[in-house]
Write a protein that binds this DNA or RNA. Structure first.
Lengths: 104, 104
DNA sequence: TATAAATGAAACCTTTTGGTTTCATAATGG
DNA sequence: CCATTATGAAACCAAAAGGTTTCATTTATA
């Protein structure tokens, strides 16, 4: 299985899970309470997030708490940002072009 | 079908296509020349990228040129960056903790 | 200690993905 | 005008994804 961050955040449910636990660790049942699908389905999403390092699970008695490990999202930022200069330049060119049109 | 930017960039081949055309528009055959898989497969990837707005196709005679429309990647940046403060705070805390350890 | 709660994991199913081959169609270049 | 080039699109396929139900195991707790 491919288990990279890009694939992990491709699924909307997983993005919601990340959002849920971003500010407060929750145990697995609490996470799944927020969704319509079964606990087993959510469990699988959590497993995927764990496997790609976006989430860490910590045992606490019979519960297991999910903590976000969002540093891994840096990989995404890095990939996206490498193109920012290019697309900003293009937007600048468009702006310039429109300004020229207007000044005629 | 889901056709959002997150899903579009989940596939490594599609990320490579984006990279290929980021700085220079290429026609569909030229794009597919860079890959092992068939032209038909690449064509489908291009279609997906087009449908979610990351790519625009412009006819030029019998050829069709693919241009990157990377502004759409902003959606990804926005989503990721909403968490940056949190994870930076956590890293700061860790750093502080380590400094305290060292100073003892 | 017996029951309930929280989780792990297997078996199974349907839909989506990513790929293929094949054929049709529209411009181009001799 | 005809062969070639560039592309669109259909039919089909295997594997992966996302989901379900069911059952086992571990830990708390009345």
């Amino acid at each position: 299985m491919r288990r990279d961050v890009f694939q992990a955040i491709a699924d909307p449910t997983r993005r919601e899970i990340i959002n849920l636990i971003a500010y407060k660790a929750l145990n697995i049942n609490s996470v799944s309470d927020h969704f319509e699908v079964s606990r087993a389905a959510i469990y699988k999403h959590i497993k995927i997030l764990t496997e790609c390092g976006l989430l860490e699970v910590k045992q606490k008695g019979r519960e297991r708490y999910c903590e976000a490990r969002l540093e891994k999202l840096d990989e995404v930022t890095t990939w996206v940002e490498q193109y920012r200069k290019t697309w900003n330049d293009r937007l600048d060119n468009l702006e310039e072009y429109l300004n020229n049109l207007q000044n005629k």
